[in-house]
Design a binder for these strands. Sequence first.
DNA 1: TTAAATTTCGACCCGATATTCGAAACATAA
DNA 2: TTATGTTTCGAATATCGGGTCGAAATTTAA
Lengths: 200, 200
Amino acid sequence: MISDRQAKERERRKDQILKGALTVFKEKGLEKATMDEIAKQADFGKATLYYYFSSKEEIFIELLDRGWKMIWESIEPALEDHEQPKESFMQALHIIGGLVTDNKTLFEFLFTAPQMMPGALMEGKPVWKNYQNKMYGVFQGLLEEGMAKGEFPEMQSDIMMRAIGGLFHGLFFLGHGKKRMSRETMEEFITSFIGNYGNS
Amino acid sequence: MISDRQAKERERRKDQILKGALTVFKEKGLEKATMDEIAKQADFGKATLYYYFSSKEEIFIELLDRGWKMIWESIEPALEDHEQPKESFMQALHIIGGLVTDNKTLFEFLFTAPQMMPGALMEGKPVWKNYQNKMYGVFQGLLEEGMAKGEFPEMQSDIMMRAIGGLFHGLFFLGHGKKRMSRETMEEFITSFIGNYGNS
DNA sequence: TTAAATTTCGACCCGATATTCGAAACATAA
DNA sequence: TTATGTTTCGAATATCGGGTCGAAATTTAA
């Protein structure tokens, strides 16, 4: 029998473990991260981690699931209005940019985690992948609708998606990270890029 | 006593091992790649790998060192002429784009390897990092000289570097890799981006 | 207070895999 | 041919680290 109070406490401990795991994963990657180190970081014994999670991979996956769910839920409202695709597009990017600057460690993890993942972890259509696909799908859809409405210049939407994804990633994560990227600067870059492509 | 003929033969075998290692590293990542598998791929016994290299990490590092050295030496000639920064810049990008399309596996490895590297491997200022830094430095220098000469619009060169790096990476490596990125398309994107930024 | 349920933990187990060893195969040169 | 150096390899070793266990600590509820 688990009381309401206990359930909340459990959640808090899971969070604590997840937070410790994030630190270690980000620093060492999935393979080099040891359960002992995660346990130390989270201030629990190793066996306790196994009381809350069934494996190292599960911790990793849960981190991704929660992260992408959070991203999706943050931008979803901005995506509902299909009347002004360009506006929705920019607004969503703006929101993500905000999340990223507030939460650099988490997002660096979310965006680079796929590279540390062996194929096995992708079995069973993981939750986070659904959110990611939904997000990319909507962005590309907005790009296409925007073109149809003349809000964007004509372009190959899939290639443009790659370009924008890379651009976004570069702005926020490349370089020595000394300087912070302001929302304004980001918006300026993307707008300029999208707005002017094809006009030259 | 090592004859000239023998030295060359040795090099050839190292290449053979490196080539096998690249295949495995690219598929499995640094940690999941096993020496047994690399040995099988390179068609040598496992112990032989240790005759030519002292550890798995050394193989990994050597791959990076040679790769970045190759990139640097390919673009260096194009970078010598400081009279036309924009021209040099575009030419260098063009060269790298060519290398990438001809050698996708290697470059995907070179550009994503940092993500699979535990911090320990970065000790001792590795050779490849020097080449990488030199390259980024020169690119940024060209951007700045180009601005001074009025060949580029005014911009923050470091941020622009990040943007172009990300854009480049996105164009070539993001997405499901179904479609190939042609040199023409890449050049069109970058030119358009650089050419139009700031004009809006 | 006390018994049951929940939570915590260090020590252990065990498979995977990097690295070493020593002997065999091969090449070279006298 | 034979002695010396070079290259190859499979078997043996050593280490590391994920996951388990059972006992102890703590909390809950009567």
